[in-house]
Each structure stands twice: as C-alpha cells, then as structure tokens.
Amino acid sequence: MESMEFNTPKVVLYTFATSPYGLKVQAFLAFKKIAYEIVYVSPFNMRETLPMGHTVPVLTIDGESKNDSQEIAHWLDERFPQRPLYPVDGDPCINELDDWVQHCMIPANFRFVRPALSLALPVQLINAWRLGCAMNRTVPDNAIGAWRFVWPLVLLWAPFVRREAENAPGNSIMAAARHVGARLSKELERGPFMCNRSEVSVADLSVYALLAFGYEAGLTGGDGLFRRSRIREWALRVQGELDPSLPLVPSQIQARKLGS
C-alpha cells in the first residue's frame, strides 16, 4: 500500500516582538494550532526584509503574503477553516469589538509607552525602555544595538506611534485604562468569552494578545486589568484554548508568566 504524503503549508510571520498587530496574528495562529516560523524585523530596514509593503505584520503562506491583521484573520479562516476566528452566525459584536481594539485599545497601549509631559512620564519612560530592550533581544545581528538606550526618544519621534497615542481614549493613562477596563468587563457580563459568547472568537484573541504581552513582558501597569477577577479568569480561559508550543512572548523577554 502506498503511503500518502501531505504537504504542510510553509507559514512565516514577519513582525516585531512588541507589535500589537503582530501579537494579534500570533494569537490567531496559536488558536488555530498552525505552526509557523517567526522573523523579527528591524524597524530600520523593513523595506529590505519584508516580502511586501513596509509595515508589520506580514504573514506569508506558501509564498503568498498579506499585511493587515484583520485581513490576515479572514485569510486564515479561508485557508484553515478549522477552529474559525469568526463565528458562522456573523455576530456584529465580534467585528465591532475588533475594530474597537484597533482604534481604542491599541492606541491606549501606545499611550502607556510613548513619553509625554504628564504625571505618567516615569511609567512611560520605563515601559519605553523595556520595549527597546525587548527589540534588542529579538531582532538579529545586533540591528538595534545602542538604539535601545534611547528607545523612549524613538517612540517619541515616530509619527505612527505619536498618532496612535493621541487617539487613545481619555486624556491620561488612567482614563484610558478605565475606559478599556469598563468595556472589557461589559463584554464579559453574561458569557465566558467576549460579546457574551460561549466560544473564543477573533475579538477574544485580539484583546488577549495585548493584555498578555503587557503582563508577560513586565510592563509597568501591565498587570492592572488582571486584578479584576472577571478579566483574569477570562484570560486564563483564552490561554487554555491556545497551543502552548506557540507562545506570544519569547522566553528572552518574558518577565512573568500568566497563570503561574
């Protein structure tokens, strides 16, 4: 009897270890249990490294590439329909919440790391420095090097980071954190997962990726929302749905582990 050979797709993710959009895609892949190769890109030579465009993340499957986290989520459901990210009933809450992550929660995260003249400046400087160290430890060939020592200035000057931080809800770190906490608590009032659903969706994974990174990378304030029992219990349920062999945070930058 002849043996059957199955071709395993070659999946490669190009990203930063600190990219919130790349972390979302990593969570999608871990939920679908899709093995992949990760390429940590230097922000100083992205055009030369990326297979398309000049922003991360870029996901390549057998040579075909896409570079938007929401578009990648739909693409993954098309290519790997098992464990769908989007429910078959088309619940509008899922898309609305994922859009909220893009336009409110991610900007709030940028506010936590981009220095600004406020009472939160010490927290922002510490977090920015930690992100610089994370980049230095993950980007190969010492491409970050001495830049890690002035990473707060890199984040201060980067136009994209500035625009995102300015779009955060409220006018302070605490106001942004309260907004995010209130929205997440509301979405978990009647169900074990976001949008009061009984199964994981793209909305859960998008939120989880950001919260888990802040916590495990040891960012100041990254443990704040996990002090709410409802959010912590939800996060542990989501974590239980992910392939543990596909971690979001590499060991070289992990300061603590969720659930331990």
Rank of each mutant, 00 (worst) to 15 (best):
Y208T: 14
W147N: 09
A143I: 08
T138G: 05
E64M: 04
F6E: 15
F112W: 15
M46D: 02
G222C: 10
L258W: 04
V154T: 10
A176L: 14
K10D: 06
G221E: 10
L13W: 09
R163C: 04
R130A: 13
V113P: 02
A134V: 12
I126A: 13
H103D: 08
C104I: 09
L131N: 10
V123T: 14
D68E: 07
P247M: 13
L117K: 11
L225R: 08
R79H: 05
S185K: 09
A176E: 13
G218C: 09
E164K: 10
P247C: 11
T49S: 02
M135E: 13
V200T: 03
G240T: 07
W151M: 10
A176Y: 07
P247E: 10
A217M: 13
Q82D: 09
P122D: 15
Q70P: 06
R162E: 08
P169H: 01
D204H: 08
G214W: 06
R237P: 00
F28D: 05
N142V: 11
E164N: 05
T55A: 02
A120H: 10
R197E: 11
E164T: 00
N196D: 15
L153H: 12
P43S: 05
G259Q: 15
T15K: 01
I34C: 00
M1F: 05
Y36V: 08
L155N: 06
M46A: 03
D98A: 01
N7C: 08
P9Y: 06
D68L: 00
L242S: 09
N171H: 10
A17Y: 05
I61F: 00
L59N: 00
S65N: 01
I144F: 07
A146G: 09
Q102T: 04
P51V: 00
Y208F: 15
R190C: 05
G53C: 01
C133Q: 14
A235W: 01
A146C: 06
P169Q: 00
R230M: 11
T49V: 09
V139C: 07
I38M: 01
W234G: 09
W151E: 09
G224E: 11
A217Y: 10
S201A: 05
E2H: 01
S185G: 06
P159G: 02
V41P: 04
W129P: 11
I72S: 00
R130P: 13
A108D: 08
D62E: 03
Y215T: 05
I106L: 01
